[in-house]
Design a protein around this nucleic acid. Structure first.
Length: 133
RNA sequence: GCGGGUGGUCGGAUGGUCGCGGGGUGGUAACACCUCGAGGAAAGUCCGGACUCCAUGAAAAGCACGGUGCUGGGUAAUACCCAGCGGGGGUAACCCUAGGGAUAGCGCCACAGAGAACAGACUGCCUUCUAUAUGGAGGUAAUGGUGAAACGGUGGGGUAAGAGCCCACCGCGGAUGUGGCAACACAGACGGCACGGCAAGCCCCACCGGGAGCAAUGCCAAAUAGGGGUCUCGUGUCGCUUGCGGCGUGGGUGCUUGGACCACAGAGACCCGGGUUGGCAGCUAGAGGCUGGUUGGUAACAAUCAGUCCAGAUGAAUGAUCAUCUCGGGGCAGCGAUGCCCUAGACAAAAUCCGGCUUACAGACCACCCGCACUU
RNA sequence: GCGGGCGUAGCUCAGGGGUAGAGCGAAACCUUGCCAAGGUUUAGGUCGAGAGUUCGAAUCUCUUCGCCCGCU
């Protein structure tokens, strides 16, 4: 039997202690995106991940940004891809993300909006593991 | 039943769990609760407005530039809509139509053809002259072929040959009359025919448009700077009532003109260098939409009454997932009725707002109408 | 969001109503022992797409698609 999405995510969604859970904020500045893209990167079928360990004092907590260029498609396809990226980040980063890092999730050509959701989730897990290594 | 035409509607539904944006309430806060949260095209940005700023005495005038272009009406306005007219298509329902002026002027009409816009004559036809030839003079425009287009068409009379030269019909122009608010329609004396096409070529005529746009504009905070160089015009003047008037200079979001206004010691142009891309307002209730009724109108639409609804983000909010149902589609089994399984599946997401236009769109539904076939 | 511009041969561009062209590139041949250069010749185009105006459209008009630039 196929594992349900809830089975994959359940250990991750289980609420961690508040003191362990860093605050997650969204990247909005272009300069942050550029700095992150110059650091570590890892591509998978569904998502392309860029990550960077910040210098001390820049900001607090985990920060995450989302990018979907016109290659992804029209406005409907871009928004849809961005929402799916937000959802997997919400389910994953509170547990697997590291404090003091910036992450940028980039939507891929046609796959981000179309592949099954659990595949997208596994792709982010793999990409995070490789980037942290 | 089949085929077609017109107008319109919808664009899955319900529930659970976890999340997102705005507003409200409570709370010191974390947060909790309540409530609202994409489209018919939100799209393209092709038009028209609202609104804001700039300019302005003024909706200034003229020129330039751009647009519109049958008539009447509707509207805040339009290139939109409605009702008609003319032209074209279709057996029909019905559809399409940038549709003013070619006698204001200029320009163009390649190739072919004798000749392409003004009457002219290559091949011809007829008469005549002579030196009888591939000749000259005259008449004619019916013949031939070319071309998108050739100076009215067909038939008859007539003639040396011919010709609206004459006649009949058709076509064209058309004084005038009738109907219509008008575009225009109908009738038509008369004219023997004179007047080719292109204005989405320049242009003429009529009407419309001041320019830029929410990245407009205003405020707050921080930071940096209160820059440098070159060039041009200036450094006012007269009067008195002593802060006003005359003159002068400079200042214009296409240009010019005149006037008013502002400034009067600085103004303008170009080049070099440096800083910031934060927050708030504008920002969503308006020529508002929808539903139902009444009145006027053929209609578009207007007036009015009642009810109801209202996204406001800014790396930009609607997602993820599960279940059930239903419309279609596909597969398998079956002669069939039907059963089982899979599958929510088109275009496309607000960005100041509104009215139109155009383009994209899986599929489903409703009403009316037309043609053909069949039955009664 | 607003404003502006461009689509013609494989590439860079002319042509602005009358049979689509230039340069570079490609191919074949000549030349050479071989290559380059040179010479001769050839192929290659729905003029981004669809309608309209015209006798006739790459050209004029409208619609549409794609690409590029500027404005805080």
């Amino acid at each position: 039997m196929e594992p349900k999405v809830s089975d994959i995510a359940s250990p991750l969604v289980s609420p961690p202690a508040v003191s362990v859970c860093p605050k997650i904020s969204t990247l909005t500045k272009r300069a942050d995106f550029v700095r992150t893209s110059n650091a570590r990167r890892q591509g998978t079928t569904g998502v392309h991940l860029q990550a960077r360990k910040r210098m001390d004092g820049e900001a607090i907590g985990i920060r995450v940004g989302y990018t979907c260029s016109k290659k992804v498609g029209n406005a409907v396809a871009r928004n849809r891809a961005k929402r799916r990226l937000r959802e997997i980040a919400r389910m994953t980063l509170p547990n697997l993300g590291r404090d003091g890092w910036d992450y940028v999730l980039v939507g891929r050509n046609t796959t981000t909006g179309s592949i099954p959701f659990e595949d997208l989730l596994r792709d982010l897990h793999r990409a995070l593991a490789k980037v942290h290594a």
